[in-house]
Design a protein around this nucleic acid. Structure first.
Lengths: 208, 208
DNA sequence: TAACAAATGTGAAAGAAATAACAATAAAAT
DNA sequence: ATTTTATTGTTATTTCTTTCACATTTGTTA
C-alpha cells in the first residue's frame, strides 16, 4: 500500500477528529462540502483525499461517518497500536499528557518521565511518571516506539540521544533546540513561536 | 513590498531563532549550508529564502548573523510591534505565557485571561492575569491585535467570538474546536494530536 | 599570475499540492 | 417519463515549492 503525502496525512487526522465529534452528535452521513467547511478547505480537497483512501460515498447521502472513521484508522494507525512516552512533566508535558491519554486507542500514552525525583510515581490521566534515569529500561519493557520531548532546552539533546539509544523510532520535538536523529528515526519538530510569528506576519500584511 | 509565501515565513522565523542562539555563541558569519544543516533542509532552500529578502552574503565569509537577524526582523515584525493576549491559563496557557514572554521584543505578551477568579491578579513572567469578563476592555485599552486561545473545548467558540468582537486581528487556536472567523481576521490552528498521528504514521511506514 | 576552490545567486526544470472542469450518477421534481 | 438537481470521482490544469545546474565571484594555492 502506497505512502500518503504528508499533507494528506495531516488532513486525514483532522477529518477523523471532526468525524468523531459528529458521531457524538449522531450524525450518520456527511457531504464533502460540509466536512470542508468545518476545516476551512475546499470540497475538492476532501474528495481528493478520500479518493486516495479509495473511499466512496453513498449517493446523495454523503460519506458514512462511522465507516469513514474506520477507514482512516486502517490507513493511519498501526494494527496493534503504538506506545508513546512523554518526557518532561512541566506545564507543556502535563498538558499533553492529560490531553493525549486515552484519546486514540491505537496511540497509547504508557509512560511519563521527569528529572524531578518528587514527580516519580505521580500519575497524570492514570499514567505513571518515572525518573528519567529509568528511560532505557521502561522504553524497552513497554515497547515504546514514539517519544514526545517537552523538556527544558538544556536537556533536550541529552534526552533525544537517550531515546534514540533506547530504540525509539519517532520523536515529536516541542523544545526549541534542533535535534539530530539517524535516518531510521522519524523526527517532527513543532515550534510555537513560529506559529505566533506567522500569525503576526499575516496580521501585519492584512492591515495594508 | 511583496507578501512572502507562508512556508518562507515559517522558515525565516526558524532562521532567526537559530541565529539568535548563534549570536550568543559569538558566531559572526554563517554559510548557507551550515544554517541548512541545523534546520535539516538544503542550502539552496536557505539561499532562495534569503534571496526573497534581497539579502546578500559577504564573499567567502557567509551571511553576517547580526545583520541577517535584523533584516528578517524588518520583514517579519511590525515596526511598532504587536500586542498579544493569551486566553486560558491552564497548563498549556501557562507554558506558553512563560515561554513567549519577553522572547521577541516586537511581540509583546501584555495580558493573560482566565475564567477562574482566583487567578485574577496572578502574574506569569511579569504579565498580569485578568478575568475573562474584562477581555473586551483590556484588549481595547492595551491595543491587543493577536489572541492565543488555550481554553478548554467548551468555551473555545465563546472566547473566539469575544475576541473578534473586541477587534482582534489574528487568532492562534490551540483548542481542538474548529473556529470561524471573518475574513479580516487571520486564523492559524494547531493541533498536537495531528503532529503525533503524523509521527505515528511515518514510523509505521518506516518499519516496512 | 594562472589554475583552483568555495560559495553564492538565480534561471530553468521538476515535483508536489491545490483547484478547476466536467462527465457520471441517481434521486427528486415536474 | 423526462428534466432538473445535487453531488461525486477523476482527469486535466494551474499554482506553489523545491531542487538542479551552472555562471559568477573572489580568495587561495601552486
Amino acid at each position: 500500500m502506497d505512502t500518503l503525502p504528508g499533507k494528506t496525512v495531516e488532513r486525514l487526522s483532522q477529518y477523523r477528529r471532526r468525524l468523531l465529534n459528529l458521531v457524538e452528535e449522531n450524525v450518520e452521513y456527511i457531504f464533502s462540502h460540509e466536512l470542508a467547511a468545518i476545516l476551512h478547505i475546499t470540497a475538492v480537497q476532501v474528495r481528493r483525499d478520500l479518493m486516495l483512501l479509495g473511499f466512496s460515498s453513498v449517493y446523495r447521502k454523503g460519506y458514512p461517518v462511522k465507516k469513514l472513521i474506520e477507514v482512516i484508522g486502517q490507513r493511519l494507525d498501526s494494527e496493534s497500536g503504538q506506545n508513546v512516552a512523554i518526557i518532561g512533566m512541566g506545564n507543556l508535558g502535563t498538558a499533553l499528557a492529560s490531553y493525549l491519554t486515552g484519546l486514540r486507542p491505537k496511540l497509547r500514552i504508557v509512560a511519563l518521565f521527569d528529572i524531578d525525583e518528587n514527580k516519580k510515581g505521580l500519575k497524570i490521566g492514570g499514567v505513571k511518571c518515572y525518573h528519567v534515569s529509568e528511560m532505557g529500561k521502561v522504553i524497552k519493557s513497554k515497547k515504546i516506539s514514539i517519544g514526545v520531548v517537552t523538556v527544558p532546552q538544556t536537556s533536550a539533546k541529552k534526552v533525544a540521544s537517550q531515546l534514540i539509544k533506547s530504540g525509539i523510532k519517532g520523536i515529536l520535538n516541542f523544545t526549541h533546540i534542533p535535534l539530530e536523529v539517524p535516518s531510521d528515526v522519524y523526527l517532527e519538530e513543532y515550534d510555537m513561536i513560529t506559529s505566533l510569528e506567522k500569525v503576526a506576519y499575516f496580521v501585519k500584511k492584512k492591515k495594508k
